[in-house]
Write a protein that binds this DNA or RNA. Sequence first.
DNA 1: TCTTGTACTTGTAAAATGCAAGTAAAAATA
DNA 2: TATTTTTACTTGCATTTTACAAGTACAAGA
Lengths: 138, 138
Amino acid sequence: MLKKRSDCPISCSLEIFGDKWTLLILRDVMLRGKSSYGEFLQSEEKISTNILADRLSLLETEEFLTKRVSPQNKSKFIYSLTKKGIDLLPIIIEIMAWGAKYNPECPKKEIGKRLPHEKEEVVKEYTQKLENQFEKES
Amino acid sequence: MLKKRSDCPISCSLEIFGDKWTLLILRDVMLRGKSSYGEFLQSEEKISTNILADRLSLLETEEFLTKRVSPQNKSKFIYSLTKKGIDLLPIIIEIMAWGAKYNPECPKKEIGKRLPHEKEEVVKEYTQKLENQFEKES
DNA sequence: TCTTGTACTTGTAAAATGCAAGTAAAAATA
DNA sequence: TATTTTTACTTGCATTTTACAAGTACAAGA
């Protein structure tokens, strides 16, 4: 990512998180309350260890996540969202909404069911929740 | 894409368009009125010819775009959005909004300036416009 | 002290991408 | 009619990225 392809905000964004894994890690953080390497590794999509390490490093570099030692366990790291990371929630929700609409085989859980008629509210609720967490941690 | 990583709608979506180029082609179609191989090739991001051919084929297979011979020129093809493709607009707009917010060096054009305060309206306007086009072509 | 938990790193093969060149058919031009 | 241009790819090959399996390092717990 030394030199940008263009100044288009869409292109710039895709250069950072336009791949099959980065947003999936953020999904785990935002919607599933995950926060550690081991937890990310357990997701059903089975990310490789080297890719996970690479993406976590990227997410930290890009300041989507911050990394700190767990107070309970000094050999464990906790990854938390920044405001910049929280602001990606609307993108993830839109992707989920689209995916839920066009993949009938995807079982719809609570959020999925709410999306067709109250997407805005879902985004607001989760943003609020994540921002509260953010405040507590600072 | 023989077997899916999981049934998560986010994961399924990213398996299709989670890369650096697919959404950029759709940007050109949705926001810049482009519709042919040659036009896509001219974008400032400089996509390779083989990648463009591969992605157009994917977009057709996934039914995001339909392909037909140009009435004016039989050696030219016109790619048009399907409803399924038009439904990706909110994702693209959210990505643009995020990118415009966090990349101060991206020059903001009309849409970019409107996004912070009237994102919903922008999505509605463009959806309307693209759906009108869709109707005209059918 | 030994085992477990946690977070990686390394090696290597496979797949995707980028770049340059070539192909083929229709359209425009001489 | 012959030639050039336009349009949309395809092909070959080097580079980069990814996937998979294995190994490493350090802290915590028994």
